[in-house]
Write a protein that binds this DNA or RNA. Structure first.
Lengths: 223, 223
DNA sequence: CGGAAGATGTTCACTTTTGCTCAGAATTGG
DNA sequence: CCAATTCTGAGCAAAAGTGAACATCTTCCG
């Protein structure tokens, strides 16, 4: 999975941050400590965020209180862009998973910049395309696969597979609860499959966190 | 659900087709009769389509041959835009559900136009935002709801609810098979729920096709 | 250090869903 | 018009997933 910032660089060969800086008034750098809420479902949707540092979790709560996690975003990604499409209110919540440094851009300033700056517009289009692809893949995954496969896929994605063949450490702390919310199942199910994966040698709990072995791909790829 | 073309018009106040016409070389109008394949999973992804007339179904086939329907698109929507984000091959298939008139735009021409024409770029961004929102909603629906609720939601969306309070006729022909592929369940399940909905008076098979009553919303909204 | 709060591992009775199969209805194309 | 498909409604056993409970483990702090 190419991250949006990477694909933007690859295709257009420039650094997003440089162009974001040219927006001028209507933007500001904001810091959020770990666990802090950035915005909540129901807030006014009058700005867009760009992640300079850290990880952000997007989630939604259903009428009956069930929670779902839509994604975990990292450096170089945008979020909260629903307002640009006319949504008045936030349809979900965003929270800092680590200490974060974000660029908060007013909706107005963002729309002006998109209309004025070719390169910025190119960047944002590249981001939206990448995000579309990711949502589409997540949806396909939900339509096709069992919860065991969905869990395996999310673990591989979180481990940044595809960079090197080397087993890489997953984001140090991610609870089974959050994993369950991402794949749409219960925590006890996640616990059950995690133990199975461990017994089969696909993952292991090292001191530096959870390690994912590429052989886990077998679960995803098999039939 | 606002269709992309509507939201583009609402926000930017212009007609997409006018600007698409300015692309010049690198685009052509193509017609597809009902049921014809437009492109197939695995084809080279070297162009983007814009729907001028008709309805198009996007689908994906899994390794084991299961099929999923990702969406049914209408006039004013783009599809096949994955290539713009660097995808070399089509990740799914597209087929005409009705006789269609499409605008096929070369990837190169599209990227040039996006970079050159402010208004075209604005239009495309609006489309991508709308599409993102729709995918996000579909994903949330999958994460939260049972197949019964997912079916009810899809029926309401297909019936264009929100336009008038009037019960509207669903797209004349949509098989239970396709419905099943859209919500990620089996056809027999769809059959079961459709009968239940009918017995409860939420839908009925009129001579003009399937009619959806707004009371079906109760199924979606009730805990 | 010692709670308190948060994670995790496990179990278990229930529900829901799947994956068939089969037979009748509705459509479609000669 | 008939024959061949393609839909549809049903039923059922097996599989998967749910929700809640409860007993450890860990971590975090005062």
């Amino acid at each position: 999975m190419a991250s949006p910032s990477n694909s933007a660089k690859k295709q257009f060969n420039f650094d997003p941050r440089k162009f974001l800086a040219t927006i001028g008034e209507g933007r500001k750098v904001v810091a959020f400590p770990k666990k802090q809420t950035i915005f909540t479902q129901g807030d006014a949707a009058d700005s867009v965020f760009y992640i300079q540092q850290g990880k952000v979790r997007l989630s939604v709560v259903s009428k009956i209180g069930k929670e779902a996690t839509l994604g975990i975003l990292s450096e170089g990604e945008f979020f909260g862009e629903g307002g640009l499409a006319g949504q008045r209110l936030r349809m979900g919540s965003a929270a800092a998973m680590t200490d974060c440094e974000l660029l908060q851009i007013d909706k107005k300033a963002m729309m002006l910049a998109l209309h004025r700056e070719h390169t910025f517009s190119d960047l944002f289009v590249a981001y939206l395309l990448a995000r579309n692809i990711r949502y589409e893949e997540d949806l396909v995954d939900q339509l096709f696969n069992s919860s065991e496969k969905r869990l395996a896929r999310i673990l591989l994605l979180l481990a940044h597979f595809g960079k090197e063949g080397v087993p890489e450490t997953v984001i140090p702390k991610i609870s089974q609860e959050t994993l369950a919310e991402m794949i749409g199942t219960t925590r006890s199910r996640v616990s059950f499959f995690m133990n199975r994966f461990r017994k089969l040698g696909f993952v292991n709990y090292g001191e530096s966190g959870l390690q994912v072995h590429s052989s886990l791909l077998n679960i995803v790829l098999h039939d």
